[in-house]
Design a binder for these strands. Sequence first.
DNA 1: TTCTTCATCTCGAAA
DNA 2: TTTCGAGGTGAAGAA
Lengths: 247, 247
Amino acid sequence: MTTTESGSGLETLTRPDAERARELVAAGIERGALVTVVGRCTVTYDGRAASSLGAGERHVMLKPDGAALVHTDEGQQPVNWQPPDCDHEATVADGRLVVESHRETPEEHLTVRFESVVHAAAYPLTDEEDLSLAGTEADLRERILDEPALVEAGFEPLATERSTPAGAVDVFGEDADGRTVVVELKRRRVGPDAVGQLGRYVDALERELHAETDVRGILVAPSVTDRARRLLAERGLEFVAVEPTRE
Amino acid sequence: MTTTESGSGLETLTRPDAERARELVAAGIERGALVTVVGRCTVTYDGRAASSLGAGERHVMLKPDGAALVHTDEGQQPVNWQPPDCDHEATVADGRLVVESHRETPEEHLTVRFESVVHAAAYPLTDEEDLSLAGTEADLRERILDEPALVEAGFEPLATERSTPAGAVDVFGEDADGRTVVVELKRRRVGPDAVGQLGRYVDALERELHAETDVRGILVAPSVTDRARRLLAERGLEFVAVEPTRE
DNA sequence: TTCTTCATCTCGAAA
DNA sequence: TTTCGAGGTGAAGAA
């Protein structure tokens, strides 16, 4: 069995020769299909870094938006890839299928050389739907704005994404005594990096608001690591535990 | 055409009914194959966050290591996924194929409900090869150790990954005047986060080495953003431009 | 474009 | 197991 074809645009080939496979891949790309090729191959990448991968059996996916993914039998991440907006090309060299993907800015090139093709397919996919996701940092921000007391009794949010010379502050407001408060939100347990981020915002605002006002910095997250807690104390910053919603 | 089978363990089905598809998926998982199912489906996820995705055509991959990926026709990243070490399960409910993937710690559950299956396949992949990658931060470190003058004339590396209360320093050494030097390496253009990281190492070492020694902090990277450069200046830290090798 | 930060980040190493 | 930082991080939003 070497060829299968169905009514609705799906094309598949089982153990095709290189030329047949090349035709399917080239036609699939041309038609805007999602193309997959499974087989024994070597992979080389040159661009932001450089990599090479000896012969093994892998699953190669070429998307109509120009993305390319090479997956082994392990791992959530592809072993090699190209981002969207690359140009894909299928050729035959020395009787073998070669799939290449290229882009400029930055210059990057991925080459997959097949020793054998087990299966190739072109799937004409359409997907209109957008993912609806809950439990993000943006959701946590909405929750804080709805219920500012989660941060502290008397806390009054005045702005979100307020810009400072150090970047945009998640939530900017005042405490019950009228002191300026900077809130940095994290949807999960925080390490030293988040403390540094909050510290930069506090420093920037103290400079911007000129001296005598001292600015409070509050990190809001489910929890904090020991090292981060120590850093918070050193810099006179505060922590408030709030779980994200996830509903 | 509804079924294809080849000698070497590959199994494919074109437009199978739900029960046929379930059998292929279940058998493929059992055999340790990489399983793909392409068709119109809805996807829900609940775990670290929660998401739902209306009906559309997608490519679902189940890996033998327990990873699951749902890809649309766009983007390098899957629209939904599960990490390795999840348990996959295929069932038929209301005459439809349902693929589920679950893990505990943390509790996470992914459900893919198919309205129709265009194609299903089980690929018995083997891959012994490891990726060889050049142009990483580790390569940059070797380069600096080979040629310390890239950092500064007279710089002498004394240790790599030297541990401090703030974490491990990339390269630890002395300058021509015997002053302690902390080098933080980055393979690409750096922003404010890297300055914070370097600053924490410098602070930790000044504390550890007690007072009178002042510690120099040098950020080594291809380039810096303006804001990061300003932060470096504020904290008395330095920058040296070095390109990663990529050979 | 560049910059900045979030991410169901993933992944690996070390404590 | 948790913590920490690298990553060819990718992706989104703003300047």
